[in-house]
């Protein structure tokens, strides 16, 4: 059984069809990359998997770990092990980063029947992950993402991922706006989490991140459909030829 299985997924936003029949299987231990130009539906797919309720699924099914993912609330999906790193992490004034992360971890632990972790026991775990992402401990007492630079926000997402240890991670354009040093740190953080029990979906526009997180599979998403799938070499081909040629190809292949 695949960890994630998407069948014929159609999604509408404001009556406009964004995803027009997606099929995708992701097994534990695999890293998949979904590439595509702006507006192709990449982020929509990520948000639907994270159970954002503003997207209306008009057809299709998604099973996760043998369960119907589309019937889950966002918090339930999170507790079941799904994590999405946001393209635009949200600023939440008045809640400290440390408190937020501990609340999230404890909510998930509670769901799994584990004891809650208090602030003191949480600290060592936290420090270890901060080090992994080369983050300043001071950021932890600041409000969630408030006044963080773009790079700090993205690192903070991966920090959350490292603390919450999801089974399926979806990185939604985590590379965008990162300079090469920050990109390397973020990628190392993600790469350190690769193991046979976990799957990762890397949603990206560019190939650069994939130099550091080498995917097992690459899928090209164009206008709401996966038009090609292949190995890591597909990402290089895209980098070389651009999405334009593939768009033309796709138009050609799709019956009018």
């Amino acid at each position: 059984m695949s960890l994630l299985e998407i069948k014929n997924l159609h999604v509408k936003v404001d009556n406009h069809e964004i995803l027009k029949g997606i099929d995708l299987k992701v097994n534990a231990g695999e890293v998949h990359s979904i590439m595509g130009p702006n507006g192709s539906g990449k982020s929509t797919l990520a948000q639907v998997l994270a159970r954002r309720e503003t997207y209306a699924v008009s057809a299709g099914e998604v099973s996760y770990n043998g369960r119907d993912l589309l019937a889950m609330k966002p918090e339930e999906a999170a507790c079941e092990g799904i994590f999405m790193a946001f393209q635009y992490p949200v600023e939440i004034p008045g809640i400290s980063n440390a408190y937020f992360l501990r609340s999230a971890l404890n909510a998930i632990r509670k769901y799994r029947g584990l004891d809650e972790i208090d602030a003191i026991d949480f600290l060592p775990l936290f420090r270890e992950k901060l080090k992994l992402l080369d983050m300043d401990e001071k950021l932890m007492n600041r409000s969630v993402n408030e006044g963080f630079s773009g790079g700090e926000k993205k690192r903070n997402e991966i920090l959350q991922m490292a603390v919450l240890e999801p089974k399926l991670s979806i990185l939604d354009e985590t590379d965008s706006g990162l300079d090469i040093d920050a990109l390397r740190i973020v990628a190392q953080g993600v790469d350190a989490m690769r193991n046979p029990e976990r799957a990762i979906i890397v949603v990206t526009h560019y190939q650069r991140l994939l130099n550091y997180i080498v995917p097992d599979f690459v899928h090209v998403l164009l206008d709401g459909r996966i038009v090609r799938s292949g190995g890591p070499e597909l990402a290089l081909e895209l980098e070389e030829k651009g999405y334009g040629s593939m768009e033309a190809e796709a138009r050609h292949a799709t019956p009018a």
């Binding site: 994270a50 918090e75 999170a78 507790c79 994590f83 999405m84 946001f86 949200v90 999230a104 909510a107």
Partner: peptide
């Protein structure tokens, strides 16, 4: 949504 997506 951000908070809920982290399990809260």
């Amino acid at each position: 949504f951000y908070l809920r997506s982290r399990g809260i």
